[in-house]
C-alpha cells in the first residue's frame, strides 16, 4: 500500500511541500485527529484555525514529529515532505526537525546569551565551518528575524532579558538559523502584545519568500492577515481547506461559517 502511494506521489510533482493522507492521532484513548488529508504548498503561509482543542496544534506537531516526545501519543497515516514519508523507519526525527523548524506558543529562549541561542542549531547540526561562519549565520538569522538592530550590541546578554516580542523574534531567528525548509508556528503571537504581534506578523510575511510556513492561530483576523491558505479544524476533523479569501468570504461548510461568524468557538 505504501508503494502505491509513493507511485501516486511521484506523479504529482507540483510545488506541494507537505502532503498528509489519512492522518490519525491518538493520545492514549483519546482520538485527537481524525483522518486528516491536506496538501501544503511551498513558499506559502498556511493557517490552521479552529476552536481550542480542535487538534490544530496536534496536527502541526505531527509535521516535525514533535509528538514523538509525548509517550502516549500515537500517529497513524501518511505524511510526506517532498515525497518522503517522514514516519518511515529510516527517517531520523532529529534530521527531520532540522528541515522543519518550529516556533512555539510561548517564547522559550534558552537561558543562554542571544548569540548562543541563535548559534545553538547551527552548532549541533554542524552548519558552520568556523567561528566566522557561525558569526555570519547568527547575523543573517537575526537580520531575517528583524532583530539584528535591536540585538547587535547585546549579543552576549542572556536571551531571557529581552522583551516578549523580542524573545519571540529571537526564537524565530533561532529556528531559521538551521536553514529549515518549512517553518511551523504554534500560535506564535498569543503571548505578545499588539505591537509585537504586528512585528512578528510582518516577519512571517517576509519569511514566506524562503520557506513554507504553517501557522496555527486562534485569531481569525491574524489568519486573514498573514496566510494565503487556511484550514479549519473542528473536533479533530479537517472541516474545510482552501484559499484564505474563500474560507473567510465564502465558507462551504456550515461549521466553518458558524465559527467565522462567532457562533461556535
Amino acid at each position: 500500500m505504501n508503494d502505491m502511494r509513493r507511485l501516486e506521489r511521484d506523479v504529482d510533482t507540483s510545488d506541494i511541500k507537505i502532503s498528509a493522507k489519512g492522518v490519525q492521532v491518538y493520545y492514549g484513548d483519546n482520538h485527537a485527529i481524525k483522518d486528516v488529508d491536506v496538501s501544503i504548498a511551498d513558499k506559502t503561509v498556511t493557517a490552521f484555525i479552529g476552536p481550542s482543542g480542535c487538534g490544530k496544534s496536534t496536527f502541526l506537531r505531527c509535521i516535525n514529529r514533535m509528538n514523538d516526545t509525548i509517550d502516549v501519543a500515537r500517529v497513524e497515516g501518511d505524511i510526506r515532505i517532498d515525497g518522503e514519508d517522514i514516519y518511515d523507519k529510516a527517517v531520523d526525527p532529529v534530521q527531520l526537525r532540522a528541515k522543519v523548524g518550529m516556533v512555539f506558543q510561548k517564547p522559550n529562549p534558552f537561558p543562554k546569551s542571544i548569540y548562543d541561542n541563535v548559534a545553538y542549531g547551527p552548532k549541533i547540526h554542524g552548519l558552520a565551518q568556523n567561528k566566522a561562519g557561525l558569526d555570519e549565520i547568527v547575523e543573517k538569522s537575526l537580520r531575517r528575524a528583524a532583530l539584528w538592530d535591536e540585538a547587535k550590541d547585546r549579543l552576549n546578554e542572556p536571551g531571557t532579558g529581552l522583551s516578549g516580542g523580542q524573545q519571540q523574534r529571537l526564537c524565530i531567528a533561532r529556528a531559521v538559523a538551521t536553514e529549515p525548509e518549512i517553518l511551523l508556528m504554534d500560535e506564535p503571537c498569543s503571548a505578545l502584545d499588539p505591537i509585537a504581534t504586528a512585528q512578528v506578523e510582518e516577519l512571517i510575511d517576509e519569511l514566506r519568500q524562503s520557506y513554507s510556513v504553517v501557522i496555527v492561530t486562534h485569531s481569525m483576523q491574524q489568519a486573514a492577515r498573514v496566510s494565503q491558505k487556511t484550514a479549519f479544524f473542528h473536533l479533530g476533523n479537517l472541516v474545510e481547506y482552501g484559499q484564505t479569501g474563500d474560507i473567510f468570504t465564502n465558507p462551504q461548510d456550515p461549521r466553518t461559517e458558524s465559527y467565522i461568524t462567532g457562533r461556535i468557538g
Binding site: 518511515d88 529510516a90 527517517v91 532529529v94 534530521q95
Partner: peptide, 16 residues
C-alpha cells in the same frame, strides 16, 4: 546541505 533526502542518514546524524 539543503534538499538532502530524509531517508538517508548523513554521517553527522549517525555520529550524533
Amino acid at each position: 546541505p539543503k534538499k538532502t533526502s530524509l531517508l538517508k542518514l548523513d554521517q553527522r546524524t549517525r555520529r550524533r
